[in-house]
Amino acid sequence: MLIVTLFVASFAIYAAMYLAPGNPIAALTGGRTPTPQAIQVLEERYHLNDPFLVRYVRWLGNALTGDLGVSIPLRSDVSTLIRQRIGTTVQLVAFASLIIVVVGIGLGVLGGLRRGIVDNVVIVLSTLSAAVPSFVASIILLSVFAVNLGWFPVLGGGDGFVDQVRHLTLPAFALAFSSIALVARITRASVREEMGREHVQTAISRGIPYRLIVRRHVMRNAAIPITTIVGITVASLFAASAVVERAFTLNGIGAYLIQAALSKDIAVVQGISLVIVAVFVVVNAIVDFLYATLDPRVSLGTSAS
């Protein structure tokens, strides 16, 4: 299923871009009128005259070996262009995921275990942060912490590990902001649900230490929906990071995708879209796999550990 999805998705991406208006010859010659011979040479070099299916199969075959074609405006390898930038995106997504897991699950568990004020604060916070889109969060964080307080650099990526972390802190929080709410909410609901179960209530009444109950009986069962939501969220961050990268002018693949879309650099849009879709599908598949290992009931083949 995974392979089929990726295959169909790649076809859809290629076909859509094939239909996109624009003339690659004009892009190559930069507006000058080329001689017929020049056109012929270019058409042959970029295989512009081959039938659609032939071009698609060639593109896909090359993509599988890591070659995503050539960016016509930049006359440069798409794979190289992506490789130069994907590090920033991966770091940003990893940093944001860490924040989402720590803060989101932390808040959710807190709200789930403690009724009353703590719980209400968690609910209000998550309602608020769920409604703040990443680009608005970017602007607010930029305005407060970078421009007014000057604690963090305004734009760019930075060099060296410490400097990079400093540069990525605000973008990572902006990216994580609304997802924290989602994770906190699911965590809270599932912790609350597990706390109300009979076996947990029995354990409490028998005087088993609270910490042990929470760790063994509540968290263990609540981990299943939490893993699912964290997985879905992390998978979607790769696409969402485009917005934050652009707001903070980070040099990642998301910002590059936008730039390529604005300048109609077809090969780059195809390449990055394929990468993002592939990451999304693969991460979702990993989540399904984790789901099965966490919950032995899901597949009978897995032994209960």
Binding site: A16, M17, A240, A242, L257, A261, I266, V269, S273, I276
Partner: peptide, 12 residues
């Protein structure tokens, strides 16, 4: 992802 689809649509 919705954003990717929108980006593709903006090109097509």
């Amino acid at each position: 992802p919705a954003i990717v689809l929108a980006i593709i649509a903006s090109v097509v």
